[in-house]
């Protein structure tokens, strides 16, 4: 059984989050974030706070859909811990373009709706 490092549940999807989704980017913010950010984001409520660090080789699971983590930018873990902020780019890159990027394979984006559970699962 692989260890779940982080678990969170989607509360709602901001009205402008589509601008990012249409560019194959999912932007998450914790529910404490100010409204100008939550309106652009998928807003979530942490179920299990992050243990350790998100790393290359981990898996991000959106309900049933799993995506291997290919690259993790330098500020990803700080952002996740301090404000529940995560930027997942479905671009297949193995080097992050931006310091805040988590890169996963360039496949169709998972369905995200209120209640979707997002987990970070440690590599085997």
């Amino acid at each position: 059984m692989r260890k779940v490092k982080y678990e969170t549940r989607v509360m709602f999807i901001g009205e402008l989050a589509q601008e990012f989704i249409s560019e194959n980017i999912l932007v998450f913010f914790g529910k404490e974030a100010p409204e100008e950010l939550t309106e652009h984001a998928i807003v979530h409520e942490v179920v299990r706070p992050v243990e350790g660090e998100l790393e290359v080789g981990d898996t991000i699971r959106f309900d049933g859909a799993s995506f291997a983590v290919l690259a993790v930018g330098d500020v990803v873990n700080d952002n996740l811990r301090s404000m529940g902020h995560l930027v997942v780019k479905f671009n297949g890159l193995t080097e992050p373009e931006m310091a805040g990027d988590v890169c996963v394979p360039a496949r169709d984006l998972p369905v995200i709706e209120p209640g979707t559970v997002v987990e970070i699962v440690a590599r085997a």
Binding site: V27, A33, H40, A41, V75
Partner: peptide, 26 residues
């Protein structure tokens, strides 16, 4: 900004620690 709310017309500036995608544009 994570503790209280303000109107944009009250802001002299904003300081962010953005990794490049969202807050840099908002």
């Amino acid at each position: 900004g994570f503790k209280s709310k303000a109107e944009f017309d009250q802001l002299a500036c904003v300081v962010i620690n953005c990794g490049g995608t969202a807050r840099v544009g908002v």
